[in-house]
Design a binder for these strands. Sequence first.
DNA 1: TTGCGTGCAAAGGTTTTGCATGGCA
DNA 2: TGCCATGCAAAACCTTTGCACGCAA
Lengths: 139, 139
Amino acid sequence: MEQIRSKYNTRHRQEIVDYLESTQGEHVIVSDVCAEMAKRGVKVGTTTVYRQMERLVEEGIVTRFTSFPGEPACYQYVGDKSEEVGHYHFKCKKCGRLLHISCHEFGHCMEHIKIDHGFEVDMTQTVFIGLCKECRDTE
Amino acid sequence: MEQIRSKYNTRHRQEIVDYLESTQGEHVIVSDVCAEMAKRGVKVGTTTVYRQMERLVEEGIVTRFTSFPGEPACYQYVGDKSEEVGHYHFKCKKCGRLLHISCHEFGHCMEHIKIDHGFEVDMTQTVFIGLCKECRDTE
DNA sequence: TTGCGTGCAAAGGTTTTGCATGGCA
DNA sequence: TGCCATGCAAAACCTTTGCACGCAA
């Protein structure tokens, strides 16, 4: 498996990737990255962050997804490997939290969809919308 | 079951709802509504469409969802009834089409998620991201 | 040196807001 | 008449683009 790499390995890129690695599975938005860079004393423009994130998505190191219109794009570091099977995203429409739920049942469902309906779901980019337990309890 | 209605039933609102009803399950964006209003000779501002759509979402007559950042919000007429069970949304990340797939397998999955993981998924707002059959075949 | 990366400013697109006017009940 | 709805313009946001400069290889 070839590695598709950007031509230059700049300081900015290193810092961004370093930060993303440290998040390990957590979701981040562009402003998070900018804030973290500032905290680390790395001066980096918003444009650069957008461009690096775009590149990382192309390289498959990061996935990008969102749920509601107008909200900033949500990114997640996945690394070189495409592991982490059976880990899905759920967004609560009330409290806005993004939850990760591991579940094996889904695998069968997705296989069924692929085989019988022809659609190959990419769970790294899919976000389930709904209500989390806490918000349901307090309703 | 009470009906939550907007106070005034204006001409604009009637026209918009009338058009949405005629789409029956198809997804529309704000510019579609504006274009259709223009075609019908109804002069209506974009702001009004946004505000009416927002209200219709609150009333549960319309659902709103999207998949990728920067894209316009996607609306779907569902009417007063919350029928149409087992009908899910799939968006192809290659050709951009939004497909509707009916499937009974999902019901069990969603029940499992609700009971064992505590998260109640709202499938009317959830969009599965992936690749459609046609795009997979032509790859 | 060559070409990619970066930053600033500006533009693009969608959606929201302020305020005066118009319309429904 | 009293609210609510509407429209226009402007603003708010997120994101992308143009262009000159900086830096990696």
